[in-house]
Amino acid sequence: MTPIRIAIVGMGKIARDQHLPAIAGNGDLIVTATVSPHHPGEPGIPHYKTLEALLADGPLIDAVALCTPPQVRYDLAATALAAGLHVFLEKPPGATLAEVTALERIAATSGVTLFASWHSRFAPGVEPAKSWLAGRELKSVSIVWREDVRVWHPGQAWIWEAGGLGVFDPGINALSIVTHILPHLIFLKSATLSLPANRAAPIAADLAFRDIAGTEITMDLDWRQTGPQNWDITVGTDCGICKLSSGGAVLTLPTGIQQLEEREYPALYERFATLVHEHRSEVDTAPLRLVADAFLSGTREIVEAFDD
C-alpha cells in the first residue's frame, strides 16, 4: 500500500520530539514536507514558511499534522480540509468547541479524515485500566497532575495567553484518560483557577467533578511543582484500587503493578492511518468540554506573578 504523504505544520518541540520519530517508524506514512515560519526544517525534507506556500509550490501531500498552538489552528485545518487533505490535530483539537464542530462539518463535506488526537489515551496502562474498571462500582476518583512548567514548557509564551490553556495544557491529558476509562459520563461541579498577576491563563486549579452515578471526582493541577513530578489517577472501587501513574505508563491493580512499553505517538499515528484507510473521522471533544466548563463557571483568584 502506498504510504500516506504527510506534512508537519508547526515545528516546535512536540513535533521534533514525538511526531517525526513516530512517523519515521510507521510504514503507512511518510513525511513529505514541513511548514514553519520560525524553524528551518529538517535535512532532506522540503520546508515551507506557510501552508499556502506548500500547497501552491510544494510536493503532493495527502495529509497534514497540525502541531501549532491551538489559537492559530482553525484556519490551517480549514484550509487543509478544503484542499481535500486529511488532518491530524494535536491536542487540544482547537481553541474553542465551536471551531472544532465547524472543522467536523468541513471534513464531512470534503470527504476526508479529521482526527482529534489525545496522546495520553494511548499510554500503555489506559486500556487495561478501562477494561478492569468496566462493570465495577466506583467509590472515588482522585486526579493529581503536578509538574514544573519551567522543565516541560520553557519559553512557550503562547501557553500563557488566552486560548493557551495554561496548566490545563497538561491537565487536559488527565481528563482525556478519565473520560475514556470511567464507565459513566462526568461533569463539573466547581473549580478554582489560580492566575498569576502577569498571565492570562492559570498556573494551578482545583476542580470537583461528579459522574452521573454520583461518584465524586477531585482534580489537583499545579505547574509550580518542584522535585518529583506527579501524573496520577487513583480510582477507588468495590474491588480495590486502580491507579494509573506516570501519565498512564504504570498501572497498579490489586493483583500487582504493570509497567508496559511507552508508545503513545506511534499508536496515535497507527490510529490515524487506520482512519484514513477506512475513510472515517474521530473527533471526541469531551476533555475540551470539561476544560471549557472550568473556564466558564470556575472562580478565578489572582496569585503572585510568574516568570520563567
Rank of each mutant, 00 (worst) to 15 (best):
R5M: 04
A7R: 02
I14T: 15
R16S: 08
L20Y: 03
P21Q: 06
A24T: 07
N26M: 02
T32D: 03
P40G: 15
P43M: 14
P46S: 14
V64Y: 00
L66T: 06
P70Y: 04
V72T: 07
A77Y: 00
A78D: 01
E104Y: 11
I106Q: 00
A108K: 08
G111N: 01
G111S: 00
G111W: 03
V112D: 00
F115T: 07
A116Q: 02
A116G: 04
R121Y: 03
P124L: 03
G125W: 01
E127T: 10
S131G: 07
A134P: 08
G135C: 05
K139W: 08
V144A: 07
R146W: 13
D148F: 12
R150M: 12
I159R: 05
L165H: 10
V167R: 02
V167I: 14
D169E: 08
I177D: 00
H184Y: 10
L185D: 13
A191I: 03
A204G: 07
A208T: 11
R210I: 15
T218Q: 08
Q225P: 07
G227E: 05
N230G: 13
I233D: 00
I233C: 01
T234L: 09
T237K: 12
L244Q: 04
T255H: 11
G256A: 12
I257A: 08
R263V: 10
R263Y: 09
A267P: 13
Y269D: 10
Y269A: 03
Y269L: 02
R271L: 11
L275Q: 06
V276F: 04
V276D: 01
V276C: 09
H277S: 12
E278Y: 09
H279D: 08
T285A: 09
T285E: 07
P287Q: 09
L288P: 01
R289F: 13
R289P: 09
D293L: 06
T299A: 11
I302H: 14
V303E: 07
D307Q: 14
D307C: 10
